[in-house]
């Protein structure tokens, strides 16, 4: 797995190790105002602080191992997928209560579909409408989940 992709020279373990150390540091700072408890009993900050410390230790270890030559290089990645798929999820979250499933459903599906270059617009539109209808029948009618359907018109 020692593939060297062009443009990425950083070993993935170095990045991973640094990220772990970063997470531990953020956690430690966020916990500074909370009591670790007296020695006889365990306070609310005891466990998270202990774990953050261990994470930092693991981060250092992984970082050192990453410095050994021959480790796996960081692969290149594109941002199109994450932005559109996760954007679709965020759009669903933002619209489901004010606009309802009938709007949020197709919106999320179409946005997500844009993440794939193979997507065909008409096909996705029709499929999104059909799937939303299916989900309404399934979740709203059959399972009776209290999810808003089209509140600005139907009131629920």
């Amino acid at each position: 797995m020692a593939g060297t992709s062009p443009g990425t020279r950083l070993a993935s373990d170095i990045v991973g190790g640094l990220l772990l150390i970063g997470v531990a540091a953020v956690a430690h700072v966020a916990l500074r105002d909370i009591d670790s408890g007296p020695t006889s009993s365990v306070g609310p900050a005891f466990m998270p602080n202990l774990v953050a410390g261990l994470i930092a230790a693991m981060g250092v270890l992984i970082l050192i191992l990453g410095l050994i030559p021959g480790g796996r290089r960081l692969e290149p990645w594109t941002l199109r997928g994450p932005i559109l798929v996760l954007g679709a999820v965020v759009a669903f979250a933002a619209t489901v209560r004010p606009l309802g499933l009938a709007v949020a459903g197709p919106l999320a599906m179409i946005l997500a579909a844009l993440a794939d270059r193979e997507t065909r617009p008409m096909e996705v539109m029709i499929f999104a409408a059909v799937m939303t209808g299916f989900c309404i029948l399934l979740f709203k009618v059959a399972l009776r989940l209290p999810i808003p359907l089209l509140p600005f018109i139907l009131g629920y």
Binding site: A88, V89, V96, A108, A115, D116, E118, F127, M131, I147
Partner: peptide
């Protein structure tokens, strides 16, 4: 897959909301 993953995204969104 170009159809499957948007459907999975929708199911997941509804599931998590619920």
């Amino acid at each position: 897959y170009r159809l499957m993953f948007p459907a999975i995204v929708l199911f997941c969104c509804i599931g998590i909301y619920s």
